[in-house]
Amino acid sequence: MVEVTLWGALGQLAGGRSKVEVEAKDIRELFRKLAEQYPALEPWIEKGIAVSIDGVIYRDTWGKRLPEGAEIFLLPRLAGG
């Protein structure tokens, strides 16, 4: 079980929740379950979001494992210079 924090805009789409609990072993499963539970999130996930696992920001690499009890944050994908 991991606890996932959603940033503002995503939280609203998840029924005003900023934290949700998901049973997921990797990013792919996390996305799949989030989309099942909160269909409004799906287009955002499709567009590409970043996932912070214990403070390190990853892209949406499906195979990335989520350690048990890890702190997960979903963040907007950023632009750089």
């Binding site: 924090t5 912070s52 214990d54 403070g55 920001i57 702190e71």
Partner: peptide, 17 residues
Amino acid sequence: KNAAQEGTRSSYGPVYG
């Protein structure tokens, strides 16, 4: 005195390494 450090929750969410 107020600087973030390892373990601080950043203002944008995640905790810093």
